[in-house]
Each structure stands twice: as C-alpha cells, then as structure tokens.
Amino acid sequence: MLSYRHSFHAGNHGDVLKHICQMLIIDKLKSKNKGFCYFDTHSGAGVYQLNSEEALKTKEFKHGIDRLAGHLAHNRAISDYLSLITAYKEFNQYPGSPEIAKSMLRPQDKLILMEWHNQEIQNLKSNLGGKNIAIHHRDGYEGLLALTPPNMQRGMVLIDPSYEMASEYQQVVDTVITAYKKWNSAIYAIWYPLISDRKAPNSNFESSDSKKGKSEAMLESLTQHPFKNVLKIELRVTGANEAGGMYGSGMLIINAPWQLDKQIKECLQDLAPLMAQSDSASYSVDWLIEE
C-alpha cells in the first residue's frame, strides 16, 4: 500500500472534482470568524510537478486541469479554483489538497497533515510548513482517530486514499464511523473512484474485479450509520462500459453544509461538459441521508 504516488495522477479529473468540493467546504467554514481544524489523512507531496517523469508518463492532467485552460468561468466555484491553480500552473505545478488548504486557511485556523509514504512525507515537509501547520509521518487512519477530537469544535476531514488494496474501502468505513463518534461536528469529505471492469491488471490496482463495485458498497455501508446528513456527488467523464478502469469519481460529504448541494450542482453543470471524454459523460448530486 506504500507504493502509490499521486504524482502520476495529479491534476486529473478526480482532482478537479475533489479540490473544487474542498474549496467550497473551506469557504463555508470561513463564513464564521471562529477558527476551525482541517485534517488531511492522505496528504501526499502537497505540490506536484506536471513536467515530472511521473506526470508525463500518464499525462492524466491533460484530461483534467488542461481541459480548463483558457476557460472563461462564469461559475464562481470554477472561477475561484482556476484563480488558485493558475499561479502554480505557470511553474508547471499543481497544488494538492494540503497546499490548497494552506492557501485558504486564516491565522485562527489549524492544519493537520498526515502521510505514511517515506518519500512523500519528505516531499510534503519540503513543500509545506508554517505556523498552525502540523505534519505527521503516520498512517492517516490511525492518526485521525488518535488526534480527534481536536480542541476546536468546527472542522473538516478530507479522506483521499489510493484504494490500492480492496480492503481499504472497508477501512474507510470503519475509520469514519469511529471518528464521527469522537467528533460529530466535523465535515467529513471522502473521495472515491468509480471503476469498471478492466481487461488486464493495472499497476495501480490489484485486478479488474477487485475494485469494481467497491465504492458503491462503501457508500451503502456508510449510509447505514445515523449521520446527520450525507451528500453524494459524482462526476462521470465517460460511460462505465466505455472505459477500462476509472471512468469517474465521487465525493461523499458527511455533515454537508447548507446549500453545498446547490453550489456543486451549479458548478457541475458547467464542469461536466469540459471534463467529458465521451457523450456518455454525466454528473449527479444526491442526498443519501437528508436532514
């Protein structure tokens, strides 16, 4: 599970969805002056070079952030996202979720970052630092449970695993349910891939069958728990039957803030056609548990 490097996938369509959702949630938390605590369980390197050997090997950013190049965004969420990443793009860089959070947080807010990969934690420490930022070389699941609840009532937890091992889907379920019992006022944002049958094994996944349906089963398990609310957001860049592997991704938001569903739906109306890789591309925003 320690072989995964996000540098191969930085700036892809999954990152675009994840980071727009992340920014919208942080903006909601910033609407009140009182500070909050942001947790990132799988921080990665924090910042990625799009001209690196890894990024150029897969070129996934070509079907992600490059699709937004030159786009005149009328939607505020997309516009804010483009404004943030453009400064990095000029240096062939893409900001990961820790860097995005750092750029948005205020002096009264706190950032807690966790990463278990030996090389990535060194990259993270080199790329990020500063007041009110704590960086931990530890397993993100264990770290989240050990460090919650923080001394701030309000906050956000971003859980963005690689899902290299099929067992990790259940690990997400177990961790979130336990963390929620300790800190039920936090907003939990879980990224997950949408995966179809794959004709041959891929270096980033165990096999073609081990991942298909796992995200859906994870969501089903989580909705059996009595959360206050659960919002499901999905962006499918092509049809499930047209792709071998990941054909889209989703964000599951527990304790979703007021009007987040409306904001992201308006965003996806503009974003989905830009990210589409076929006529079968689609998006959905649904309440799995509504207050």
Rank of each mutant, 00 (worst) to 15 (best):
A166C: 04
A166Y: 01
S167R: 06
E168Q: 09
E168H: 02
Y169P: 07
Q170T: 04
Q170P: 02
V172E: 00
V172F: 01
V173Q: 01
D174S: 10
D174Q: 04
T175Q: 06
T175P: 09
A179G: 13
A179H: 06
Y180L: 08
K182P: 07
K182M: 04
N184M: 08
S185V: 08
A186V: 00
A186E: 05
Y188E: 04
Y188K: 02
A189P: 13
A189D: 03
W191P: 13
Y192T: 05
Y192I: 02
Y192F: 10
P193S: 09
P193C: 09
L194S: 11
L194K: 11
I195M: 06
I195H: 02
D197E: 15
D197N: 15
D197K: 14
R198S: 15
R198K: 14
R198Y: 08
A200F: 10
A200K: 14
A200S: 12
A200Y: 08
P201R: 01
P201D: 10
P201W: 04
N202Y: 02
N202I: 06
N202V: 10
N202R: 10
N202L: 11
S203H: 13
E206L: 03
S207R: 03
S207K: 03
S210M: 09
S210Q: 10
K212C: 12
K212Y: 06
K212E: 15
G213D: 04
G213V: 08
G213C: 09
G213I: 05
K214C: 09
S215Y: 00
E216M: 05
A217V: 10
M218E: 02
M218R: 02
L219K: 10
E220V: 05
L222M: 12
L222R: 05
T223Y: 05
